[in-house]
Design a protein around this nucleic acid. Sequence first.
DNA 1: CACGGTGGTTAGCGCCCGTTAACCTGACCG
DNA 2: CGGTCAGGTTAACGGGCGCTAACCACCGTG
Lengths: 211, 211
Amino acid sequence: MSEQHASSGSSTSTRLARREQILREASRLFAAHGFHGVGVDEIGAAVGISGPALYRHFAGKDAMLTELLVGISTRLRDGGRQRVAEAEAAGEPPRAALDALVAGHIDFALDDRDLITLHDRELDRLREDDRRQVRQLQRQYLELWVEVVRGVYPALPPARARACVHAVFGLLNATRRLSRPTALPDRDETAGLLHRMALGAFAAADAERAR
Amino acid sequence: MSEQHASSGSSTSTRLARREQILREASRLFAAHGFHGVGVDEIGAAVGISGPALYRHFAGKDAMLTELLVGISTRLRDGGRQRVAEAEAAGEPPRAALDALVAGHIDFALDDRDLITLHDRELDRLREDDRRQVRQLQRQYLELWVEVVRGVYPALPPARARACVHAVFGLLNATRRLSRPTALPDRDETAGLLHRMALGAFAAADAERAR
DNA sequence: CACGGTGGTTAGCGCCCGTTAACCTGACCG
DNA sequence: CGGTCAGGTTAACGGGCGCTAACCACCGTG
């Protein structure tokens, strides 16, 4: 309401930077200790301010988690849609769209590990209406995948395709577990490995149909 | 200390049943709301007693989570070892041992969904020494898989094999997400699908070596 | 029949947490 | 130069939490 006429340039930019800084640290802490395991004082300390000062930027602790989850779900869905649209506009075969989806998800999982963790761990900590919104975004992202997968493997029944996509999400999101301690051997190498494993899993799921 | 001479038969059995009942409900609640999101009164209410009565059976809330995580990790490791030993004793090829591992893990993931959830979500809520114990059990289970996988795909370097096993764990553990709402189409069908996807992922990981 | 132990109960304590209140400061602006 | 306001501070409050204390009922045994 009161941000229509952004007054001074520098103050606005610093304010936005502070907000993003808080969100980044909050996502790190939530991913490490769980939403209920992190106190507001802890989040404040992580950005150099202390405790209640966070309420100058967010309505409350819940609001931070909500913004994180809505943001990540939206980015995943929109990024996926854009990649699929680009592949289709280029007149490429369905396989190329699936490649683009897989590559995009892997980039996301490798670059924003904390957010991926929150994304499938802390959904139930949201208020009812926010949870519904995030779930809708997640479902739209999933259905996008299902359509593309069924384009590549038309014989796969929808329910089974949905299960496959869930399973591949699990495979790709396992990134958070492996690259933590082992100082990932090489980013591109890991990405390529995950990419081929995901495609191999889909292919094997389709092969099952012809048993 | 005081349990050497188990006195009355019936009281012992009911006591053990009550303990297991508590653990079952606690795992369900922890999986649903997170360790910090569940109160002891809530756990007590789930088994028909109220609040502090739990302290007749467990030293505290932490002890319940510890027992759950140690139990599941031990079961996974020992079950895996037994299956591999049986396959090798029968003189079957390495592929059979991998099949047995995959099938065992799928059974576990389908039958004990809550425990699988806790297993990779709430590890960091343990006290330092307990966490180390659970992590060691998990690592032994993982290394068992790595050995078997390398038996099937000898050209796969160890570090990469380890990453593959992590990824496949993620794929198999994604069960918890899919069978919740969709009233899983059919248990055996789901198990078969996951089984083939896991094997397909491994095969694709090996194929990458020959790029 | 007294009695000890097992497994409950309710009351309450101390602590921590999310949030609000009241106050302060420094930058920008008329 | 005075005023406004964004963005901090500390103090405090209310509630919920894990856990302990104190008490009690039942039940099998000497």
